[in-house]
Design a protein around this nucleic acid. Structure first.
Lengths: 205, 205
DNA sequence: GTCTATAGACCGATAGAC
DNA sequence: GTCTATCGGTCTATAGAC
């Protein structure tokens, strides 16, 4: 066993980390653009500019690639929640995070995975980083939902879990891409439109 | 050229038609259950109980299989629209068709295809039966939407096309399956819940 | 005997894994 | 760069209807 200078190990680790970031960035955009099934690992390797075999040095399987991208976006969500102004009302917080989610999706940065893929689900559930992030985010959102319901801002007749799912679902709402495809509205208009139908509903008020 | 008894031709045609119905039924449920990519044509053949080659006597490709299922559900939608009571208000009609759509999905009869598959999209767009059905359904829904907006029942500030997309999106809303997975509600409750969030929004009124 | 449909082997390409 | 599995699609020999 050879002693390695500390400075070199750190540098090497930095390189590894940088490459992993690049990989995850590519995976993130590919997942947003074409989904898990349609994304091939050859494609990922090509876009990163490394050999396919090198990918497997970092991630043991395609599922783990996707999981890493999900962990990353979950961390970004946690950071966003952390940065929200504490003085805002719960309803404002919820609207803000949904807006953030939809803006991310419209910008091509939201990895949407099929909700019915078993191998991928298993990998995600087995990933503590992902699961802890998901739970923390859900707890925060759940708390805001219940506060907003207690304040009579969000319909108290709705189960909080149904509200939570409805908010999460904006991250993969096909209405966003359809409206964008139509080309009649800016991204900002689309976000406000869907935000309105989500919170205010389709009915006139 | 030999004359063939009418009765025989009819019988044979009936057999073919019956088998095609069986195929489409299987495809429909497989598409609802696991999506287009995950569905294999071997699987389809096995579940129908015929050889794979026989499938290709009926449908020239996997895409056409999916297209046939989509045409079928589109026809069912058209028949449902046709059967609605003419005296109901436009808003009631819209609510009814969305309810019907979600019930079909919860029952496993709504073939959900990924919105970003190009080969499948091409096949569907090239299919006149599907496109005509889609246009007819959209025209009917669009007319109701504009009527309901004129009556002040649906928010007139929303572009009609956005309302239309929002209604269509209920056919692939992951909230339905998530709530069903939770096991806390009956299918009927889930439908009314999502119907409420769709039309009334999350906010208290 | 002829003709059609079927069953199941088979092929080529692709993609995940190493 | 190689290996292997899978999957969409095809080919052929045979069984059965007429």
């Amino acid at each position: 066993m050879t002693r390695t200078p500390v400075i070199k190990v750190s540098f090497k680790a930095q390189m590894l980390q940088a490459r992993e970031d690049a990989i995850i960035e590519v995976v993130n955009h590919l997942l947003a653009e074409k989904g898990f099934e349609a994304m091939t690992v050859d494609e990922v390797a090509a876009q990163v500019g490394i050999a396919k075999a090198s990918l497997y040095k970092h991630f043991p399987s395609k599922e783990d690639l996707a999981a890493a991208a999900m962990v990353r976006v979950m961390r970004k969500a946690q950071a966003y929640l952390q940065g929200l102004p504490a003085e805002a009302t719960p309803l404002e917080q919820l609207r803000a995070v949904v807006r953030w989610t939809m803006e991310l999706k419209l910008a091509g940065g939201m990895p949407s995975l099929p909700s019915q893929n078993s191998s991928l689900r298993a990998t995600l559930i087995a990933n503590p980083d992902y699961m802890n992030g998901l739970i923390e985010v859900s707890d925060q959102l759940g708390a805001w939902i219940e506060e907003a319901q207690a304040q009579g801002r969000i319909n108290p007749a709705l189960p909080a879990i149904a509200v939570l799912y409805t908010l999460y679902a904006r991250a993969c709402d096909p209405v966003l891409e359809f409206l964008k495809m139509g080309g009649q509205h800016t991204d900002g208009e689309i976000v406000e439109l869907v935000l309105s139908t989500c919170f205010d509903g389709l009915n006139a008020r």
